[in-house]
Simulated assay, not measured.
Amino acid sequence: MLPLIKYPSDCGIFGVVRRGDGSNKVSGDLVVKAIETIKFRGAGLGSNFTLLNRECMGFRMGIFVKEGLMGNAVNIVESLTRDHGFNLMDVRARDKLGPIVDLETRVSIDNASINKVTEVINTINDLLWEGRAGKVYYWGKNINVFKGVGYPSDIASIHGVKKYNTSLWIAHTRFPRIHLATYPTGHTHFQ
């Protein structure tokens, strides 16, 4: 008797980049349709979409935070950005999954050096991690990441991925091997 394999043993990945400055940007709708063709590879256990733009979209940072520690996490971000001369413009919850909140912060960093920005982000991440409050999962001026537990179409719907047009997309449907995907934080969860 042959063993029955219920799920595939690998993730599904799709990437696309526009041909050049004279060509059209790639639509989120195309990316959602493409990754949906291999959605079975993730078995509904996690998906993400990453978009990269050549043009600046404003500095942003994505942070997964435990809901009960959200005030502490926001205080850490506010104080460190202020102490380093950055202006925190906006903090908003983009999604909530169980006890985890997906925060997006927008920060004005003016002409700060990449080394200074990296130092601030690493310090924020270290403080969040030490208190098991959360973790920074992306940051930059040309990036946005949409992540969660579910099939790609679920995550795309929650975050409105189809409305974006950009220079480069990477889509991923996750098949977890180490632990069940009950949180969107990947293999390095902070429960």
Rank of each mutant, 00 (worst) to 15 (best):
22 G>T: 08
100 I>R: 04
70 M>Y: 08
102 D>T: 03
47 S>M: 07
43 A>M: 13
165 N>M: 12
81 T>D: 08
54 R>V: 02
27 S>E: 15
58 G>P: 09
3 P>K: 10
31 V>D: 13
121 I>F: 00
165 N>I: 04
22 G>W: 13
51 L>R: 15
128 L>D: 05
25 K>N: 14
122 N>M: 04
176 P>L: 01
4 L>M: 09
157 S>C: 06
184 P>C: 02
14 F>C: 04
82 R>P: 00
75 N>D: 14
120 V>C: 05
4 L>C: 04
62 G>L: 02
124 I>K: 03
144 N>Q: 14
117 V>Y: 08
76 I>H: 06
168 L>P: 01
51 L>M: 15
140 G>E: 06
136 V>P: 01
187 H>Y: 08
44 G>M: 11
69 L>R: 13
124 I>Q: 05
86 F>Y: 15
36 E>V: 04
37 T>V: 11
144 N>Y: 07
65 V>S: 13
114 I>Q: 12
160 G>F: 08
6 K>Q: 12
91 V>R: 10
60 R>H: 07
159 H>K: 05
118 T>P: 00
50 T>C: 06
175 F>C: 10
44 G>P: 08
78 E>L: 13
110 D>M: 10
172 H>V: 07
187 H>D: 13
120 V>K: 05
119 E>V: 00
159 H>L: 07
36 E>F: 04
47 S>T: 02
150 G>P: 02
178 I>P: 00
88 L>E: 11
189 H>F: 07
95 D>G: 01
95 D>Q: 08
159 H>M: 08
87 N>A: 11
60 R>C: 12
106 R>G: 01
33 K>Q: 15
64 F>K: 03
